[in-house]
């Protein structure tokens, strides 16, 4: 084939495309392989005795819903087996903050609003719907930490409501021990 400036141009373009797409594939593969390696390395194997391990537990603190508002229940906190489930601090529409008696923040996370029932059953021509509960019981999970004294709950970017939960936690621990 006679090489002209047009075929040369074409070859340059093809080369650039092949190399750039190859590089993109390589980078994507590299990133995925490295992330998966990191994740799997950080994930220990399942321990069949996990649920019997005394150091793995968390607390449930109970609230009553009265007229759509949260009120701290008289029930003692409940000690539950295993660590609390994964809670991202970066998503959800309600933020939970827990502090020690000195007001120091121990931790925080975000969850879906616990005072609503949310229907995403959007097949069969239905629409999604969110209803605020007027009554009922809500539980808020915190790590197993006797130092937790207050729990603050707020809509994201809203005003926090603070609940003194120290006594509920102490009575819950007494029941367990």
């Amino acid at each position: 084939m006679r090489v002209t400036k047009y075929t040369t141009f074409l070859l340059v373009i093809v080369t650039v495309l092949v190399v750039s797409s190859g590089c993109a594939t390589v980078m994507r593969d590299q990133k995925f392989a490295s992330n998966r390696k990191k994740v799997e390395k950080n994930t220990p194997p399942f321990d069949p005795a996990y649920f019997r391990q005394a150091d793995r537990k968390h607390l449930a603190i109970f609230f009553e819903v009265k007229d759509g508002r949260l009120v701290l229940s008289d029930r003692p906190a409940q000690v539950r087996p295993a660590r609390m489930p994964y809670r991202s601090p970066t998503t959800g529409d309600v933020v939970v903050v827990y502090r020690d008696a000195g007001g120091k923040q121990i931790g925080r996370y975000a969850i879906s609003d616990p005072v609503v029932a949310r229907s995403c059953d959007v097949d069969k021509g239905r629409k999604g719907a969110v209803a605020r509960l007027q009554k009922g019981t809500v539980e808020i999970l915190v790590p197993y930490d006797p130092e937790i004294s207050t729990v603050e709950i707020a809509p994201k970017e809203g005003k926090f409501t603070s609940f003194k939960v120290g006594a509920r936690i102490k009575s819950g621990l007494r029941l367990t021990n």
């Binding site: 970066t90 998503t91 959800g92 529409d93 975000a110 879906s112 949310r118 719907a129």
Partner: peptide
């Protein structure tokens, strides 16, 4: 759909659902 909420913190993508903006990868 519900696992998207419960595990990954994804919000609804239809009107009249539950909406929020995550600070990481909303």
């Amino acid at each position: 759909h519900e696992a998207g909420h419960a595990m990954f913190g994804l919000a609804d993508e239809y009107p009249s659902g539950a909406h929020w903006q995550a600070s990481e990868f909303p």
